[in-house]
Write a protein that binds this DNA or RNA. Structure first.
Lengths: 193, 193
DNA sequence: GCATGCATGTAAGAAGTTACATGATTGT
DNA sequence: ACAATCATGTAACTTCTTACATGCATGC
């Protein structure tokens, strides 16, 4: 894990930098705040937490005294952990490798019925529309609480990213659908002329 | 590979559905047309091509007689391969799991200097701007040739996807930068009052 | 009594990247 | 002479997901 390219380590440090958490609550936090743009599984989280302790980037406190279920292990970031996180934050982010399966299906669409592709696009548009509305709800909420309490900038920026990306995907799908249906008409006209 | 979730198999079938190709030229084709939204390495391509032949989805033709380098192996899709591809195209695409590292860095930005984060955003804006211009070039080209030859709809849709996504990312970064710098000023004012 | 949520963890495997080996041809 | 391009392939490795095991508490 020394020279790995995995970011799990830094994501955990980032979440822990806001306050102590258990492995379980870290998972929930990532799901809640980042799920659309980042994901981590327990299979990654628990071993990485142990690694962080081993390297001195975090400390663990076991406690059996709570009401719910078995004993839990709370982790908190150390000074060394904060330095390690800061070091990573200063480095230029790597260029992301995106994979849009729907783009492939639309692109290879000539090999199946137009209706199937259009159906996928319709579903895609619907899904992105829902996500946009969901994110708008968040953004409204942030706008309201920002007046009183301190701003939750990190969550706001994540939600904003969602808004832009989902809108882009929706609009792309709408225009793609238009282009595909336009071609269908063109082909029909060619046949009948 | 029977019940795998890997899409490599279908991507290769999709590319082969347009005409016979060698493993090498398939790689080039994917790089050229999809690189921003899909990628495959030789380590995936060559074994999968052999698998496709084994399953009867493709046929291979070896030839030693060409000028360049060692003998090459041309693959072409079979009827069974076309059916397999069509079957996949009809299925609903899986929901993509996106990972934006820059979002994490921006989100955890409170743990390092504001300038570092702003610098990342500036780089990101610049890069997306260049990509938008690149994609615009493609789209112009398509617009021109569409009048004469038959439309290259698949490439057009991919380029369009690029245009929307890169624009969204650029605009998100611009607004994020604004929000971050706004907060910096707010904090300054709080200190001085 | 049973599902769900809280909570930690491991093992197996799938998926994907990187580095390497080989080798001919073409252009500088 | 050397770098680049064409061309095929494998092995090692990293990364990540999935499935499983365990077990208490709470609500239906």
């Amino acid at each position: 894990m020394q020279e790995s390219t995995s970011k799990t380590k830094y994501v955990l440090l980032g979440v822990l930098s806001r306050g102590p958490q258990t492995g379980y609550s870290i998972k929930k936090a990532i799901e809640y705040e980042y799920s659309h743009f980042w994901q981590e599984s327990f299979g990654q989280i628990y071993p990485t937490l142990k690694f962080l302790v081993k390297e001195g980037f975090a400390e663990s406190t076991e406690s059996q005294d709570q009401k719910n279920g078995r004993g839990q292990i709370a982790y908190q970031i150390t000074e060394a952990g904060k330095i390690e996180l800061k070091k990573w934050l200063r480095e230029a982010p790597t260029i992301e490798k995106l994979r849009y399966e729907i783009l492939l299906k639309v692109s290879f669409g000539a090999s199946c019925e137009t209706d199937a592709v259009v159906g996928h696009l319709d579903e895609f548009i619907k899904r992105n529309q829902l996500l946009i509305e969901e994110v708008d709800g968040f953004l409204d909420y942030f706008k309201r609480i920002n007046k009183d309490e301190e701003r939750h900038i990190d969550s706001e920026l994540t939600a904003l990213c969602g808004k832009y990306i989902y809108t882009a995907m929706r609009d792309w799908a709408v225009e793609s659908k238009r282009i595909i249906e336009e071609r269908k008409v063109e082909e029909h006209e060619t046949k009948n002329s």
